[in-house]
């Protein structure tokens, strides 16, 4: 590891500097010097402040906030490192861009996730590290390796340690929609807990009409599990349905807390006791508006994935374990 040709550089865009710093601290590194800013004409400008020639470069930028600006920042940073002769460029995208636009579900609907995959490749990325892709098939959109990490080990740890009724076994894992059943059953199996499912009838995007509960939650703590929470319309209504069916408390554990639009208001006014999100997306400002939000730190998993990728070790350990 002494050879200078095999050293590592961690860059961060403006999307989530906090997470990048946590990852860097975990790896005992400084973030590499770069200025990513916007000109008066709104074009993104990337200035690299140190040599990346023949280095192993990691660029941390989740898809959140002003998505398109953050995407261009990431692409230009990749391009900058590529033209500066980096040996390998890994895009670390904890929350993938346009992950829900992954199929042609009506006439002339764009598959934007595929477009993003192509853009990352064309910019010069050699490798992508992401977490809880909305559909794991998105990995197939790439012609470069994609490591899709799971927040599940961190979620399991949180349920074991922080959900009050877990030790009495009075907890039910609930999937808020049919699409998430697999994710929720996996967690229920690993914790040896009951499982329930809410089925929703959706009329148009971001709008839910009617919900039906399958399973028994009476007198128990319900834990809703999902990969992302956007406007929180689904979670709010699911919590209501669970309470109406006799659940004593309702928690929600969600990997990507996008929490856009009126999400904070919806959570505040809902039957939810707590909404637990990971820090793949920054939500410090949202926490101020909504005291029910709690955080799981996934930076150890991401940092360990970077360390293992850099050293050429297997990453699959992280699919089932939280690094100490």
């Amino acid at each position: 590891m002494d050879a200078p040709s095999n050293s590592i550089k961690i860059f961060a865009g403006n999307a989530h500097m906090g997470l990048a710093k946590l990852i860097a601290r975990r790896l005992n590194l400084d973030l590499a010097k770069a200025a990513v800013l916007k000109y008066t004409n709104n074009e993104t400008s990337v200035t690299i402040g140190e040599s990346v020639r023949d280095e192993d470069v990691y660029i941390i930028q989740p898809g959140c906030g002003d998505i398109n600006d953050n995407l261009m920042e990431l692409l230009i940073m990749i391009h900058a490192c590529k033209t500066a002769s980096a040996r390998r460029i890994t895009a670390v995208i904890p929350c993938f861009f346009y992950a829900r636009q992954d199929k042609k579900d009506k006439s002339r609907a764009p598959i934007s996730a595929k477009l993003i995959a192509n853009m990352l490749t064309v910019a010069g990325a050699n490798h992508v590290i992401t977490m809880d892709l909305h559909a794991s098939q998105i990995q197939g959109f790439f012609n470069i390796p994609v490591d899709n990490l799971y927040a599940e080990p961190s979620t399991l740890k949180y349920i074991r340690e922080c959900i009050p009724d877990y030790k009495e076994g009075k907890v039910v894992i609930v999937s808020p929609d049919a699409g998430g059943a697999k994710r929720a059953t996996s967690i229920a199996d690993r914790l040896d807990l009951e499982f329930a499912l809410i089925h929703k009838e959706r009329k148009k995007a971001n709008f839910v009409s009617r919900m039906v509960l399958v399973g028994d939650v009476k007198g128990k703590t319900a834990v809703l599990v999902d990969d992302m929470a956007d406007t929180c319309g689904t979670l709010g209504k699911a919590a209501q349905t669970l309470v109406e069916n006799g659940a004593t408390k309702v928690y929600a554990i969600v990997t990507h807390g996008i929490l856009s639009g009126k999400a904070c208001e919806v959570i505040n006014n809902s039957a939810l006791t707590q909404v637990v999100v990971t820090n793949t997306i920054p939500h410090e400002d949202k926490k101020k508006l909504c005291p029910k939000i709690a955080t799981i730190d996934v930076s150890p998993t991401l940092a360990e994935a970077i360390r293992r990728t850099h050293n050429g070790e297997s990453v699959s350990y992280l699919f089932h374990n939280v690094p100490a």
């Binding site: 590891m1 400084d30 010097k33 200025a35 360390r307 850099h310």
Partner: peptide, 29 residues
């Protein structure tokens, strides 16, 4: 203000004890 990042080392959050660099020798910048 973001241009300062070019000359100043971006410290990871909180204080850190740099014992021995576990991953690799970065060399002094």
């Amino acid at each position: 203000s973001k241009l300062e990042n070019l000359t100043k080392t971006v410290e990871p959050s909180e204080s850190k004890q740099k014992k021995n660099v576990s991953i690799t020798n970065l060399g002094e910048i």
